[in-house]
Simulated assay, not measured.
Amino acid sequence: MNRPVRTTLVVQLQAGETDRFPVLAHLGYDAADPFALTVVFAHDGRVLARWTLDREMVGEALLRPVGVGDVRMRPESRGLWEEVRLEFLGDTRPDGRRHRAVVYVWAAPVAAFLRETYAVVRPGEEEVRLDDFLAQVMAEG
Rank of each mutant, 00 (worst) to 15 (best):
V71E: 04
V66F: 08
E76W: 11
R72E: 09
A49T: 12
P65R: 07
L53K: 00
R50P: 04
E83R: 02
L80E: 14
L89P: 08
G90I: 05
V68P: 12
D70Q: 04
R64G: 08
P65S: 08
F88E: 13
R55Q: 08
G79N: 07
D70V: 05
V71W: 00
R64L: 02
L48N: 07
E83L: 05
E60T: 06
P65D: 02
T52Q: 03
R78F: 13
M57A: 12
W81D: 14
L48Q: 12
W81E: 14
R74S: 07
E56K: 11
W51V: 03
G69D: 08
V66L: 02
L62K: 04
E56A: 11
S77Y: 15
D91L: 12
R64M: 05
L86S: 02
E82Q: 15
D91V: 12
G90Q: 06
M57V: 13
E82H: 13
D91H: 12
V71Y: 04
R72I: 06
L53G: 03
F88D: 15
E60P: 13
G69F: 00
E76I: 05
L53M: 05
E82T: 12
A61Y: 07
M73G: 03
L86I: 06
L86G: 04
L80G: 13
E82R: 13
V68M: 13
D54C: 05
E76R: 08
R64V: 11
G67V: 00
E82W: 11
V66D: 06
L48D: 07
R72K: 04
V68S: 13
R55C: 07
M57N: 10
W51P: 04
L86V: 00
L53F: 05
E87L: 03
D91A: 14
R64W: 08
G67T: 03
E60N: 08
P65N: 03
L63H: 15
V58A: 00
G69H: 09
T52R: 09
D70F: 08
V84L: 02
M73E: 03
F88T: 12
G67F: 01
W51R: 02
A61H: 00
D91R: 15
F88I: 15
L63S: 15
G79A: 08
G59R: 09
M73I: 05
R50K: 00
R55H: 01
D54L: 01
P75L: 08
R78P: 14
L53A: 03
D70W: 05
L80H: 14
R74T: 09
T52H: 08
D70A: 01
L48M: 14
D54W: 03
V68D: 13
V71I: 02
R85V: 10
R78T: 14
L86A: 06
L63P: 13
T52I: 08
W51G: 00
R85I: 09
G79V: 06
L63N: 15
L48Y: 11
G69N: 09
R74C: 10
L63T: 12
A49D: 11
G59S: 10
R85D: 10
E87F: 06
V84Q: 05
R55N: 01
T52C: 04
P65C: 02
R55E: 07
R72N: 01
M73W: 00
D91F: 14
M73L: 03
G59V: 09
M73T: 07
